[in-house]
Nucleic acid binder design. Structure first.
Lengths: 174, 174
DNA sequence: GGTTTACCAGAACGTTCGTTCTGTCCGGGC
DNA sequence: GCCCGGACAGAACGAACGTTCTGGTAAACC
């Protein structure tokens, strides 16, 4: 709800009704709407990390482990426990530009997770160019997410995966 | 200002002060804040298109014409007449999810412009796979923009360009 | 020269929304 | 049996902000 309709466009009252909880309870537990949003984002980040983990473990070669981020994204988005228009973290950072550090910290956390893991997964494929490959996959991944916001291309995840694949091949050759 | 601090976080009063214009004048000219924002977005889209045009014309081979979108993005962003945190269109669509059609129409216009031109520019390089290549470049482009929001990778445009280059090469080979 | 047009400054209005306050009720521990 | 922590519904508050209104000024035009 927060991440479908937008954080700013979802009043606290709706969250209360949806959760079947009273105003006072929410505010004693979280203190503010921003803190609640930050907590929701932290939960999403943990969930996302877990799903990604599974797909990396399930892959059986270096290339598939790197590309697993796209397969993980596909299954994360198919899970109706994680509805969102495109990316909860990028959207939150956009909507709440000047807002609480607590919130932009979660985007930073997501980005750091992606950067670190992609770098690690790129090493066996690209060696000393691992940083370049990791950057490229991160951009392909973010671009796929943005594709949902644009409504184009039709299959952003498949497109992002092909892009990352081509990048990996390009680095594998040299 | 609208696209640096965020549309929602920029009150009309600040725009008035900035523009040295009175409330009444703004409202007789535009009718509402949303309409003003929509107009600002339309102007940006026209500017962006013009800059992109120049870079396509200046390129002297098919590959560079396709990749010109990244060079255009770099010079568009360097021009201080077009400040923005990442992408005005994607940001506006995120901030004003349920808002006026007039606004989401501009994102649709940007996306259509990108999709059409990239497809056209992809044809000489990828022939029957032109649609795939165009999709890939669009994702690489959107990913580069998102990179500015993330603050990672450090040079999103260069990374996106490499990504698109690898995709073009991959399609050129088959 | 009077009228129209366009603009200005600033007050005022109405709505939305995050947050707090009031008063009530229930359930479990001594 | 009493008490207290925690939850509830709902009213109330206060700030922010988009929009409209009031009244006044100055140039453009017939």
């Amino acid at each position: 709800m927060l991440f479908e309709r937008g954080i700013r466009d979802t009043p606290v009252d709706e969250l209360l009704r949806r959760a079947g909880v009273s105003t006072a309870t929410l505010y004693t537990h979280f203190g503010s709407k921003d803190a609640l949003v930050a907590e929701a984002l932290r939960v999403r980040l943990a969930d996302w990390k877990a799903v990604w983990d599974q797909h990396v473990v399930a892959a059986d070669n270096d290339l598939d482990r790197l590309l697993a981020v796209f397969d993980a994204l596909a299954s994360y988005r198919n899970d109706r426990r994680h509805p969102s228009r495109w990316c909860a973290f990028l959207a939150a950072a956009t909507e709440l530009a000047d807002a609480a550090d607590e919130i932009s910290d979660v985007l930073a956390g997501d980005t750091a997770l992606l950067a670190d893991r992609l770098l690690h997964l790129s090493r066996p494929l690209a060696g000393q160019h691992a940083q370049d490959l990791a950057d490229e996959v991160l951009v392909a991944y973010s671009g796929a997410l943005a594709g949902f916001l644009r409504g184009s291309p039709r299959s952003p995840i498949g497109t992002g995966r092909r892009l990352a694949h081509a990048a990996a091949q390009a680095h594998g050759r040299d």
